[in-house]
Write a protein that binds this DNA or RNA. Sequence first.
DNA 1: AGACTGACATAAA
DNA 2: GTTTATGCCAGTC
Length: 112
Amino acid sequence: MPAEAMSVVQPARSSTEPSLAERVFVCVELIPSGSVLSYGDVAEYIGTGSARIVGRILATEGYDGLPWHRVLRADGTCAEHIRAEQLGLLRAEGVPIRGDRVQMSTARWDGR
DNA sequence: AGACTGACATAAA
DNA sequence: GTTTATGCCAGTC
């Protein structure tokens, strides 16, 4: 996570609604084209321990304009319902793909 | 309040 | 390489 982004992602300010969802959105927006992050990576960046929450948020509050396709499972596979489109988008961005899975070792965003 | 759920992760078989 | 079992935890009902 870039330092300049932390100030935006950090805010656990309001006692009423820190909202993990907003932090997820900001983090996902920062992923550069051609790179990817796992759900667990995003969870770690925004300060929650659970990757499942990230998936749930994208599933329910995702909006267009958000590069959701740059987030996938840690082993490089993606959820069945979105697999085809996701792989297509990633391939178009030049992400290394072997068969039906992304090569996380080289595609994973290092935070820079 | 309590049970259920899930675009997940990881270890073990 | 694969499949199966367990843990996970915030949101939703």
